[in-house]
Each structure stands twice: as C-alpha cells, then as structure tokens.
C-alpha cells in the first residue's frame, strides 16, 4: 500500500455479533473504518446495518435482551470492555438519527448547547453554538431566532440542527443512521454536502438505503446482508466491480 492510500483505522470491529434474545442479528462482522473517511453501510432492510451502527456507541446497552459479543476497537481500545464507560464513549462517538429529533422543550440555541449544558461543560457556549451551527450550514438560517422552538424549523433544518447538536460535544466519530431518509431531495443534497465538509474533521459511518447517496458521499462502502458483512471496499469498486455476486445483485437493483 502506498503512502497516499494509507490511513490509520479509527474503528476496527472484530468478530462482532449482536443478539436480541435468541436471535442473532449481526454475525461475526469484521470491519475497519479509516480515520477521517466516510464509510457507507448499505444493505436491504433488516440486514443489520443499524444494529452494527448502534453497536459502535453502545446504544445496545440500553435495550433489554440485547447482547453484544466480539471486539470493537476505537483507536485501539476495546469499547466493549466493561471497564469502558459507555457515557464517556458516546461523547467521542456521536450519532445522528433517521428522523430529526430535536428536544422540543428547548430553544434552538439550547438544543445545540444541550450536550454541553447537560454534561456541565464550562466555557463559552455561544461560541460553540455558532461554530457548530456554521459547520452544520444552518447558522445563517437561524441566527436571528436562536431563542425559538426547534419545531419552527423545517425537517431538513431540524436534521442539520441535530447534526450541530452532535458536533457540539466534539466527537471524533459521527454515526449517521439514514440521516436523509425523512427529507426531501433539496434538504438531502444539503446534508450530503455537509457530510463532505465534515469528513475533514470527523470519521463518519453512514447507514443508507439510498445507493446513489452511498456512491456520492462515501469513500468506502460495506454491504451487509442477513446480518453478515458480505463485502467491503472502496465505494467505486463496490459499485462498479464488486467481488461478490450478492453485492452486485443488490447494487444493480436485482433485489433489496
């Protein structure tokens, strides 16, 4: 591998399995996510892509009956180690959800500052809020109504607000679970632009149903099917020259 393509891996999942009660929904996945790159996770509904994503910041801890096996290394440290504090981990691994979920009882400003305020982080919150809203390409639209309810924003704006909120705690990794699936095409395009800009600073893992979106935003693509990782590689290779038959069938629309 030459120097131009060599990257340190931010996340490395080894032998990762997730069970809900008796059902195994993720089967011995091994996957590396390079630092400051975008990894798209694609696959048909129920293939385990969201389950994989949620394992990366230990959201499964809170689901009764869920069990995670195997190792996930974040900067070489196994986050599934019981000694790792899930709360501290989630500050390093932020998450944006499928549907915009701003806190309705807080103002736009307080939504962005929520992570800081709730975690009692001292400092200039106004500065952080402005920076994060600028990073999320929302500042110009909301700067005159920071005290308003987030519900006064459109769906696309709400989603960018949620991204700004996730950025405010300064995570290293950003997990996005179909962040544009509830949005119209224009709002989707803005989110995708944003992902391009954000990868300069963050490692991003994005789950998407939209193959064009995966092709547009990601450097690497992982294809999941029935809880297994079928194939992972450079996005271009996955879409133009997949090694596996099932990947080809899926990306060309033969099933899924």
């Amino acid at each position: 591998m030459n120097a131009a393509t060599m990257h340190t891996d931010k996340i490395e999942a080894n032998d990762l399995s997730v069970f809900f009660r008796q059902a195994q929904v993720l089967k011995r996945v091994a996957l590396k996510v390079p630092e400051k790159k975008v990894m798209a996770v694609i696959g048909p509904s129920g293939c385990g892509k969201s389950t994989f994503l949620r394992a990366l910041n230990r959201m499964h801890d809170l689901v009764p009956g869920a069990r995670v096996e195997g190792r996930i290394l974040l900067d070489g440290e196994n986050i599934n180690d019981p000694r790792v504090d899930a709360v501290a981990l989630r500050r390093r691994v932020g998450m944006v959800f499928q549907r915009p979920n701003p806190f309705p009882s807080m103002s736009i400003f307080d939504n962005v500052a929520a992570g800081l305020k709730l975690n009692r982080v001292k400092g200039n919150h106004a500065e952080v809020v402005e920076r994060c809203l600028r990073q999320a390409a929302l500042w110009d639209e909301v700067k005159d109504r920071l005290g308003h309810s987030p519900l006064s924003l459109s769906g696309g704006q709400q989603q960018r607000l949620c991204i700004a909120r996730a950025l405010a705690v300064e995570p290293e990794v950003l997990l996005m679970d179909e962040p544009a699936s509830a949005l119209d095409p224009i709002a989707t395009a803005r989110i995708e632009e944003l992902i391009h800009e954000l990868k300069a600073r963050y490692t991003i893992v994005i789950v998407t149903h939209n193959m064009q979106q995966a092709a547009r935003v990601s450097d690497q693509t992982a294809f999941f099917y029935m809880g297994e990782l079928i194939e992972v590689g450079a996005t271009e290779q996955i879409f133009t020259n997949p090694r596996e038959k099932r990947t080809e069938d899926y990306v060309t629309g033969k099933f899924g």
Binding site: M59, V87, R90, R91, F97, N101, F103, N119
Partner: peptide, 16 residues
C-alpha cells in the same frame, strides 16, 4: 428518539 438523542450526546441515563 429523544431519549436516544440525549444518550448519544454522552448524557448519563439518570440525567436524560
């Protein structure tokens, strides 16, 4: 989803 949003910000469960 609001609970998840808060937890994903690294807010402890009781505070969430």
């Amino acid at each position: 989803s609001l609970r998840e949003a808060s937890l994903a910000l690294g807010v402890p469960q009781w505070k969430t």
